[in-house]
């Protein structure tokens, strides 16, 4: 359930090694994975899981997942990406993911932040207020 302190520290160390000039690179991550495979540290499964969680959080920070109920044009995605890049002052790419449960509108997730403008959320807000 909980990650050991030393494993978490080691994962954080590997996470730091995955960056070049402040940017996460595929080559560095591949290098880290090769190093772990070669050295086979204790608790390597837990280490890799902790490492994966940190990398996933970093990837999510730089990626806007645009959930939509209807269709979304590439222009809209581009507009969302540029607007978010401006807001967060870092390059953010946008990927579309259909989600019919939204009924209408969009939900954009960047890291921990969620921007929601969907009919489903407005109806649920209405439901809780009435």
């Amino acid at each position: 359930m909980s990650v050991k302190k030393n494993v978490q520290q080691a994962a954080r160390q590997l996470y730091k090694l995955s960056f070049v000039d402040g940017r996460l690179t595929q080559e560095q991550v591949a290098g880290v994975l090769a190093y772990v495979e070669k050295t086979k540290p204790a608790d390597s499964l837990a280490l890799l899981k902790a490492y994966q969680r940190l990398i996933a959080a970093e990837v999510a920070r730089n990626q806007a997942v645009v959930e939509h109920a209807g269709s979304v044009s590439p222009e809209t995605l581009q507009s969302v990406a540029s607007s978010l890049s401006k807001t967060y002052q870092r390059p953010i790419t946008a990927t579309a993911r259909p989600n019919p449960a939204l009924l209408a509108g969009l939900r954009v997730r960047v890291g921990d932040d969620v921007y929601e403008n969907s009919l489903a959320s407005q109806l649920s807000q209405l439901g809780s207020n009435v």
């Binding site: 969009l106 921990d112 932040d113 969620v114 921007y115 403008n117 209405l126």
Partner: peptide
């Protein structure tokens, strides 16, 4: 009327939430 007022109150702009 209450429901209509509530609907009118709902702003048509994105709401930002911080999640985990």
């Amino acid at each position: 009327e209450q429901i209509e007022q509530q609907i009118a109150k709902l702003q048509n702009k994105a709401v930002k939430k911080n999640t985990g």
